[in-house]
Nucleic acid binder design. Structure first.
Length: 307
DNA sequence: CGGGCCCTGGAT
DNA sequence: ATCCAGGGCCCG
């Protein structure tokens, strides 16, 4: 399921073939993928056709293109995409493979290539969003030329690959909450880009149990956990992300290879790669958590929690 | 802050 | 036929 590494792989695949190109047509095969578009298909078409893409940026799991008029002036809007859990953005070149299954929206570019939005489960979408300045006025995201970002992504915190992220501050935020640490890692308003897979992997790497209250973490452990999350996502990025099946592929239609390196996610009943104990699975907040019952421990409760 | 919902298709 | 997967958002 596309989390930060997978979305970044897609961004890197799309950027060189889309930035600098002009959109010549919009084809909508399933309007449900435009659910979040004000004014629907007609308005999106009016905003896109004849505009060029000037940058491909990403914050957390949100990906967007900056748009400019024919004369090069910025339009003040971005084309925003979220892959949900089964979305793909695929580059289709004339004569190349042409995926039809679950194709929902296509953009045609002035070199004849197409960008297809494919989405089996329809949790993702494509829509336009006005640009606003990031609250901290720093570079908005990876791939962004300035501090502007789509208003519909402005509530999303910076992610662990963002040079402007203040790691110590995020660690302090985790420690200021009493919710389970996994729920905090998944909260895109605290730190973005982490989903169920990389949350379980980061917790395993840092030896922290999913249900440890944030307030029970030391600053040192909270920092170690965030660094573990960053490290596992960087390793996944290096091998093209995590693919379990055909649901996640890059812009060229190729899978990633990180599934074979997972230590916790999806490994219920298999031996822990550190200590050999069987990985267990627990349901919490409607999601499964995979963890090693021996080497992932609750760091215990703080005095405050014991009261 | 937890739970339901949006969706489809593959597994049971 | 029913269950389950899950990101984000909305509801209470």
């Amino acid at each position: 399921m596309p989390e930060l590494p997978e979305v970044e792989v897609v961004r890197r695949g799309l950027a060189p073939r889309t930035v600098g190109r002009t959109i010549t047509a919009l084809e909508v095969l399933d309007a449900r993928s435009l659910r979040r578009q004000d004014g629907g298909e007609d308005r999106l078409r009016a905003l896109l056709v004849g505009r060029s893409m000037t940058a491909a940026a990403r914050r957390g799991k949100f990906l967007w293109w900056r748009l400019a008029e024919a004369d090069g002036a910025e339009s003040g809007e971005a084309l925003l995409a979220h892959l949900g859990m089964s979305g793909q953005l695929r580059l289709v070149t004339p004569g190349g493979p042409d995926p039809q299954r679950h194709r929902r929206v296509s953009l045609t570019l002035d070199d004849g290539a197409r960008v297809d939005f494919i989405d089996q489960r329809l949790f993702g979408g494509l829509w336009s969003s006005d640009l606003v300045e990031a609250a901290d006025r720093r570079l908005a995201a990876l791939g962004s030329p300035d501090a502007l970002l789509p208003v519909d992504a402005a509530h999303i915190a910076r992610d662990l690959l963002d040079p402007a992220l203040d790691l110590a501050e995020v660690a302090r935020t985790l420690r200021g909450r009493r919710r389970a640490v996994k729920s905090l890692l998944l909260d895109q308003g605290i730190v973005s880009g982490i989903g169920n897979i990389y949350a379980d992997e980061a917790l395993w790497a840092a030896r922290v149990r999913y249900d440890t209250p944030g307030s029970a973490l030391s600053q040192r452990t909270a920092l170690a956990l965030l660094r573990a999350a960053r490290a596992v996502m960087e390793r996944a990025l290096d091998v093209g992300g995590t693919s379990f099946d055909a649901l996640y592929v890059n812009a060229q239609g190729e899978p990633g290879y990180f599934a074979r390196s997972l230590a916790a996610y999806g490994r219920e009943g298999e031996p822990c790669r550190r200590c050999g104990r069987f990985i267990e699975r627990a349901i919490s907040q409607g999601r499964s958590s995979h963890y090693c019952p021996r080497c992932q421990r609750s760091t215990g409760v703080t005095r405050k929690d014991a009261e």
